[in-house]
Design a protein around this nucleic acid. Structure first.
Length: 485
RNA sequence: GGCCCCAUCGUCUAACGGUUAGGACAGCGGGUUUUCAAUCCGCUAACGGGAGUUCGAUUCUCCCUGGGGCUGCCA
């Protein structure tokens, strides 16, 4: 099947957009079809320079790049495919042609009303507790007069909605839907600047681009009857539609910027993995019917089906995203993990770049970290001398009093100094032996770990000592002893 | 206001007339552990309300209530 994602270039890719793009992509891929990207830039005022690239980059990051339409070629934007152009602003003549056809067939009419009059009209209607709708003043204009005025007056083209009809449709997610014609407004199809509105443009494009199923947000549901009418008047069979439920804020309103991060870019910079975000978004409103929680893109392609998509909105709750992030983080192969965090750590500690043991150190924090940017802080003690205080070295829970600390540090130093072959098993057995001679394990390991890292939380004492090396370990123990005396 | 859509634990959801209403996240408790994380085990927690259909409704129908979306020469 051919599916599409058709964003407006007005800002960054929204997480809700990424979800509909994902669903569209999944359907295309599981049917060995094509996933298209079309840019809906019909509102000149709202278009923002650079956002097409940004949207494409976010999609690429997520791994769901389009097969056809507007694509990224290196760092620049390109168009591929036979049914383009894929920027709506480059298809104005196409829309005009079909608008003309609608006009000739009597399904559309010109309207010369000014913005002021329309505003006044809506105001009056609202005050009279009526639904704001175009009052069809211009519909009754004689043909000749309308034609004459069209030649030299600014005007729009409106859809003539059959008021007595009931328009029904079967949505892929919602099932049977029906709308009373008399509550559907005579939608503007062609604006006075010659650009089409979304309504006309998407109908024309989805037909011409042979889209089989349109997946879009629920906010479009109420304009569906207009779209269905357009398909009919143009003599075309409408595609299937699947209106996916909205992503919601905690207060159940439509997900908005004010209440948290909504752009994919923000999640990228925060350090989320594409696997985690995609997995999370996929499960928000869809489930496989099994108890499987972790899905790779490949697995989603196999498992996804539109009829298992939920009808009700889903709150965008970050807690599960973070859990998924942790799951995917731990799935990364350790060498790759090290490679990915190296630039971040090196930014703060340039020595990391030359560090032969970097991968070994990285491995120690992998399962402790949720987001990549946490790495420098978690690895700080490898690259700077820890600041150690008695308060840190002593620990009530481990039964280490501040009076014990100097004795324990001295004992640790002499024990570790006697190790010739500095390996993890040797360190471990030496310390375990020490633990049988008076002190408890926690009483020697807590001060050791604290002295080596300067942190209340960190990887384990044995591992840290091992990777730090004998010399540095002794040095830190000595320094710790000195700093508290 | 009008129209449309929706309604199971706090959150994401399973159930397609008969279940002790299941799972996951979060929360809580515990095991493991030198800390944290990870991991393992356990616990708390839901069918919005009312009619109807039916031997039997979370499930089907209607009404109510609640929530959301739309109501632009924006998408």
């Amino acid at each position: 099947m051919r599916t599409r994602f058709a964003p407006s270039p007005t800002g960054y890719l929204h997480v809700g957009g990424l979800r509909t793009a994902l669903y569209s992509y999944l359907i295309a891929k599981q049917t060995k079809g094509e996933f298209l990207l079309r840019i809906e830039d019909t509102d000149q005022e709202r278009s923002v320079e650079g956002t097409v690239e940004s949207i494409l980059r976010s999609l690429e990051w997520a791994g769901i790049s389009p097969d056809e339409g507007v694509v990224l070629k290196g760092t620049s934007v390109d168009q591929v495919g036979k049914v383009g152009p894929y920027f709506q602003s480059e298809r104005l003549d196409v829309y005009k042609k079909y608008a003309q056809e609608l006009l000739e067939k009597g399904h559309a009419y010109p309207c010369f009303c000014t913005a002021d009059r329309l505003a006044q009209m809506r105001d009056d209607q609202t005050k009279a507790k009526q639904a704001p709708m175009y009052d069809r003043l211009c519909m009754s204009l004689p043909k000749e007069e309308a034609a004459k005025r069209m030649a030299n007056e600014p005007h729009v083209l409106r859809l003539k909605v059959p008021r007595t009809e009931v328009i029904t449709f079967e949505d892929d997610i919602r099932g049977k839907l029906s709308f009373q014609g008399h509550v559907v407004d005579d939608q503007v199809l062609l604006k006075s600047d010659g650009f089409p509105t979304y309504h006309l443009a998407h109908v024309v494009d989805d037909h011409l681009m042979k889209i089989d199923i349109v997946i879009r947000g629920e906010e479009w549901l109420s304009s569906l009857p207009k779209h269905l009418l357009l398909f009919r008047y143009l003599g075309w069979t409408p595609p299937r539609y699947a209106h996916v439920p909205l992503l919601l804020n905690k207060d159940k309103t439509k997900l908005s910027k004010r209440q948290g991060s909504v752009s994919v870019e923000e999640y990228i910079t925060k350090g989320y993995l594409p696997e985690a975000l995609l997995n999370f978004l996929a499960m928000l409103g869809w489930n496989s019917g099994t108890t499987q929680e972790l899905f790779s893109l490949e697995e989603l392609i196999d498992a996804f089906s539109i009829d298992r998509v939920q009808k009700s909105g889903a709150i965008f709750d970050l807690e599960k995203l973070d859990w998924l992030q942790g799951q995917w983080m731990r799935k990364i192969e350790p060498p790759e993990f090290a490679e990915r965090i190296l630039p971040l750590v090196a930014e703060k500690y340039p020595d990391a770049k030359k560090d032969k043991d970097f991968a070994k150190k990285a491995a120690l924090i992998q399962e402790r970290l949720t987001l990549f940017p946490e790495a420098p802080e978690m690895m700080s003690f490898f690259y700077e001398e820890p600041k150690v205080t008695v308060d840190l070295l002593a620990n009530e829970k481990q039964k280490v009093t501040s009076a014990d600390v100097p004795k324990i540090l001295a004992l640790l130093t002499s024990t570790l100094e006697s190790i010739d072959d500095w390996t993890l098993p040797n360190i471990q057995s030496a310390l375990e032996k020490l633990a049988t001679e008076g002190y408890k394990k926690g009483q020697i390991l807590w001060p050791l770990r604290a002295a080596l890292t300067g942190k209340p939380f960190s990887p384990g004492a044995y591992e840290v000592a091992e990777v730090l090396g004998k010399e540095e370990t002794i040095k830190r123990l000595t320094a710790a002893l000195k700093s508290i005396s």
